[in-house]
Computed example of a mutant assay.
Amino acid sequence: MVRLPLTPDEVERGQRLGTLLRRARGERSMLATALDARISPETLRKIESGRVATPAFPTIAAIADVLGLSLDEVWAEINRPEGGVEPAGSGRNAREWLAS
Rank of each mutant, 00 (worst) to 15 (best):
M1K: 14
M1A: 15
M1D: 15
M1N: 15
R3S: 15
P5R: 15
P5E: 14
L6T: 02
L6C: 11
L6N: 09
T7C: 09
T7D: 13
P8Q: 14
D9I: 09
E10R: 12
V11K: 08
V11A: 12
V11T: 08
E12R: 15
R13P: 01
G14T: 07
Q15G: 04
Q15I: 04
Q15W: 12
R16F: 01
L17G: 08
G18C: 13
G18E: 11
G18T: 00
T19F: 14
T19D: 14
L20A: 08
L20Q: 02
L21T: 00
R22I: 05
R23L: 15
R23Y: 00
A24C: 10
R25W: 10
G26A: 13
G26W: 02
G26D: 09
R28A: 13
R28E: 12
S29G: 07
S29D: 03
S29P: 10
M30A: 05
M30K: 03
M30G: 12
L31C: 05
L31Q: 08
L31V: 09
L31N: 09
A32L: 06
T33C: 08
T33Y: 03
A34C: 10
L35E: 01
R38Q: 13
R38D: 13
R38E: 12
I39K: 01
S40Q: 09
S40L: 13
P41C: 11
P41R: 14
P41I: 13
P41K: 14
E42N: 08
T43I: 05
L44F: 07
L44I: 07
R45V: 01
R45W: 11
K46T: 06
K46F: 01
K46V: 00
I47G: 03
I47L: 05
I47M: 05
E48Y: 02
E48H: 01
S49E: 03
G50F: 06
G50I: 04
A53E: 05
A53V: 00
A53I: 00
A53D: 01
A53H: 03
T54S: 11
P55I: 03
A56Y: 10
A56L: 13
F57P: 03
F57C: 01
P58Q: 07
P58W: 08
P58I: 03
T59A: 04
I60Y: 02
A61L: 09
A61Y: 07
A62I: 05
I63S: 03
D65K: 09
D65P: 02
D65A: 11
V66N: 00
L67F: 08
G68V: 02
G68W: 08
G68T: 01
G68I: 04
G68F: 10
L69C: 07
S70L: 10
S70K: 05
S70G: 08
S70D: 05
S70Y: 03
S70T: 06
D72G: 11
E73H: 12
A76D: 14
E77H: 12
E77L: 04
E77Q: 14
I78Y: 14
N79Y: 14
N79R: 10
E82K: 15
E82P: 07
E82C: 12
G83Y: 06
G84Q: 11
V85H: 05
E86T: 09
P87K: 11
P87F: 09
P87M: 13
P87W: 09
A88Y: 05
A88I: 03
G89V: 04
G89H: 02
N93S: 14
N93L: 12
A94K: 10
A94T: 06
E96N: 11
W97N: 06
L98Y: 10
A99T: 01
S100Q: 05
